[in-house]
Nucleic acid binder design. Structure first.
Lengths: 206, 206
DNA sequence: ATTGCCTTTTACTAATCAGTAGCTTTTTTT
DNA sequence: AAAAAAAGCTACTGATTAGTAAAAGGCAAT
């Protein structure tokens, strides 16, 4: 019993700290990006030293990869927990809103878009790719049913819709609205949903 | 005469080389981004040495700023040269297409979106800000007339439309379409225009 | 050919940062 | 309480890169 509880306690604190590291990295990646974030930044933010950090993650690239994996897992969990009564379009809207709100709280790093360097790192991780593919496949099915239900354009290929959809989560327009337009989080989300689904011309011709 | 022609010739080669530097930097910024581009990269690409490079631009930040200024000037020139018979929406479409094609040829760096660091650099340059403001004002007028003509949604604020419009020029969806979807440049442009103006749902309800 | 001037380059400095070696402190075991 | 073990930290290394000082090279006028 003593060995078990001890090990389990140590394991617990270890895991807790690991999560703290991941959280701090998430925030730092979202604010500074991969290249400008230093391992000293991360260690300092968590309140540990750099060598301790390397007990958890063997490199900066590994750390960033784990953050992105966790993000994809969160997205998959969110998708999985959606009410089955929702229409396909509502599911897409809700997921995008979830991502945008996460981002507005400073918790959404978007590495794959940024630099080719980072994209290369991520495509080397099988664990990342597995999740990205799973999410892509699930969303593809949702887009297809939305098309069948007449909720999405059928003249756009499904992958084009998906690429565009992903891009809205890291759209710089969000920063501009926040920084120069002083819009509230709610207004930003509302406008982003309109723009994504209806475009800037949209129903103007009606 | 001899002194004049000499000076003018030297001036000419100097300017020519400066343009070569700007062109190389444009390509490098578009492909690697600011942080990963080194001054040795630029010098090597042009075929000169680093100290010669510093005869033209006093720092890396200065060089990147000049590239962005030139880009804005090009956009302003393009806007200025548009046929006056075009509708406002056509003008917006044409400019976006111009930017997208430029990007697909590898010649469109999009610094201001990337890192906050770079945004800070640019906002310190009065010459950059002047041009950005001028372009923003002109496009704002075009958007407003498009709204009046019923060519754009009136339920979106003009600045939100503009922020979104700018963001389409650096939309990662373009990379994804090119990299994973193997779409042609023409198809990418067509889809981006549809998505920008009509959204992914767009006329699906008709 | 030689002197003087201007340009270009080689070879450096200083700073930053990922990753680590080895010492110190705390905790655990007996 | 003492010995052993584990965890964490200070202080380093090596590599990269922005920016520069001083040598090398070219070109004009005489």
């Amino acid at each position: 019993m003593s060995i078990f509880s001890k090990l389990s306690f140590k394991d617990k604190t270890f895991k807790l700290r690991e999560q703290a590291v991941l959280d701090a990295t998430t925030t730092l990646l979202a604010s500074k990006g991969f290249d400008l974030m230093t391992m000293d930044d991360v260690a300092g933010e968590v309140g540990i030293s750099k060598p301790s950090l390397y007990k958890h993650f063997k490199s900066k690239e590994d750390l960033a990869t784990e953050v992105m994996i966790q993000l994809l897992d969160d997205a998959l969990t969110y998708l999985d927990g959606q009410e089955p009564t929702l229409t396909s379009r509502e599911r897409l809207e809700n997921l995008l809103e979830w991502a945008l709100r996460k981002r507005l709280e400073g918790g959404l790093p978007f590495l794959p878009s940024g630099s080719p360097h980072v994209r290369e790192i991520l495509t080397k991780s099988l664990r990342y790719l597995t999740r990205a593919y799973k999410l892509h496949k699930q969303l593809g099915q949702i887009v297809d049913s939305a098309k069948e239900a007449g909720e999405l354009r059928t003249d756009l290929p499904t992958d084009v819709i998906l690429f565009s959809y992903y891009s809205r989560t890291c759209d710089p327009a969000v920063d501009y609205m926040q920084l120069y337009g002083h819009y509230s989080a709610d207004a930003i989300v509302r406008h982003m949903l309109t723009i994504t689904f209806e475009g800037i011309a949209g129903s103007a011709r009606s």
